[in-house]
Structures are given as C-alpha cells and as structure tokens.
Design a protein around this nucleic acid. Structure first.
Lengths: 137, 137
DNA sequence: GTAGAATCTAGACTTCGCTCTAGGTCAAAC
DNA sequence: GTTTGACCTAGAGCGAAGTCTAGATTCTAC
C-alpha cells in the first residue's frame, strides 16, 4: 500500500482551505509533521494531513483561535504522554462552544422578538415598540 | 419629567462598551440621533441611547457586522415608511444566527466525540483514535 | 519540446473592530 | 482656587487571520 501524495491544490480542494491558507498554516506550525517536498520543491501531502485539516476546520469554525490550535498541534506532535493536556484543551474548547451557543440563543430571542414586533407592525400599521426617529421635544 | 442626561462614562458603565468604542460608534453613525453636547463639548446621552446600545450589543454579539448595524441605524433614523426593509434586515440576521447555531452544534458533536475518545484513552490507556506522531515508515 | 497551469518564496497588504496616544479642555471635590 | 479625574479631537496602532503580489520555477498535456 503506497501512500498517495496530494498536491497543495488537491488538499485545498479537499479541505476548502486556500493554497495561501495552507502555506500560512504550515508557517504557523499547525501541521502534525513537516510536509515533505517533491524533487522540485512542491509540497506532498497525504490523506492523514487532510484528515487533520478537516478537524482543524471544525475547531476553527467553532471559534478556536489559531494560537490555541497551534498549542494543540504541538501537543499532538510531541507524542504520547500529554493526553491529559490535550483532553483539557479540548474540554475547554467544548465549554466555550457551548457558552457561545447559549449566548447566541439568548440573542436570538431578543432578535426574534424584534422581528415579531416588526411583522405585527407591517401587518396592521401600529407603531408600538418600533424604533422611531426621536421626537423633536 | 426632565430627561436625565448621562456622561459618556455613565453610558460606558451601563452598556459595557468602552468610551473609545462609544466615540467610535458615533463616528460610524450607529446612533439614532446626533448626540447633543454640553456647553463644554461633552456628550450628553439619555436613556433611549442606552436602550438602543443594548440592542446594538445583542446584534453585535450575535455576529452582525458594524456595516449592517449601520444600515439598520440609518433605516431607523430615516423614519417611518421603511419598516419592511428593517424587517427584512432583521429576518436575514435571524437566519444567519440560526445557521451559526446549527454550525456550532455540528462542530460540537465532532469536538465532544474527540473529548470522549481522549477520556476513554486517559482512563484505560488505549491509543485507538488518538492523533499520534506520524510513524517513521 | 513547448505552452500553459500549478507551485514556489518572501514579504507587503487588507479588513475588522476597536484601542491607544498625544496634547489639550472641562468639571467636581476639597 | 487648585488639584484631580473625566472628557475632548485627530489620528496612529494593533491583533487576528488570512490574502495577494512579484518574479521565478516546476509540472503536465499536447
């Protein structure tokens, strides 16, 4: 079983990241290994890199800063023995995602309330509860 | 009933925004009126400004960009007649907040899955499903 | 074997949303 | 009446997370 190698363009297509972003990620040390190069200097990725990037995407989409992702990558790179640290980092992120969902849900109630007020207004022409220009007093 | 006027510091305390941010918001045209000034040039806010800022906070926390908030403020400022536009803007934002919650929820599943894998590992010492350093092949 | 697409590096640039600085003025407490 | 703290303006600066450019090189398909 020969490991297929993927070009940066392939990986960009597979992960949704731009080739610029992939090079940027590498500079930032977000990969689990040094990406090998072809004779001509082109990057040669493999399926495991893509898999890792897909997890990175989830972490990033859910609001993890690059700096934290970098710490996580460093923990994984440094091998077995720090699983508790990795666990703590992931748990902390999970907490923050749950908190963010709760915050958004609270905002949603307020926003939906406003939407309802405007819907009612548009339907029957009352102005109650609407933001109107400040009356000249 | 005399409208109490509030200093920029009072409003900062009441809204959680910094005085810098309040001046920035004003420059950006995010208020519903021109904020009046004292004889000495200090800003004089009132309770309605605070109320509006609290809504702005909810919109901002839920991910509305300044530019959109600006459009919304402009609609409100321009008076009655554009309620449908305001409604559409709010509905669109509501949609985006719901979508964001859904996205976060999907990420959460992946993250929680990882947490579970690490918990199991830390408990009983298996390495299955963990990111390990790339084996030297 | 050559045209055109993809990739390379280093580093400058962009956007967003404030934050901070400098150099003053104003106001409230003692 | 002076000190101290809050406030003023204009504009520079910052951190995050890429994006883009230039100019050179490599790879792929005909």
């Amino acid at each position: 079983m020969v490991a297929e190698s993927l070009s940066i363009g392939d990986v960009a297509a597979a992960t949704g990241l731009s080739v610029h972003a992939l090079r940027f990620f590498e500079r930032e040390g977000l990969f689990l290994r040094g990406i090998p190069r072809s004779a001509g200097g082109h990057r040669l990725y493999d399926a495991a890199d893509v898999e890792w990037l897909l997890l990175c995407n989830r972490l990033r989409e859910s609001g993890m800063p690059i700096a934290t992702l970098k710490r996580f990558a460093a923990l994984v790179r440094s091998g077995p023995g720090n699983e508790l640290d990795r666990l703590e980092l992931l748990r902390e992120h999970e907490r923050s995602v749950r908190a963010r969902i709760a915050e958004l849900t609270a905002c949603l109630e307020v926003i939906h309330g406003k939407v309802t007020v405007y819907e009612r207004h548009v339907e029957d022409g009352t102005a109650a509860g609407l933001w109107a220009p400040v009356p000249s007093s």
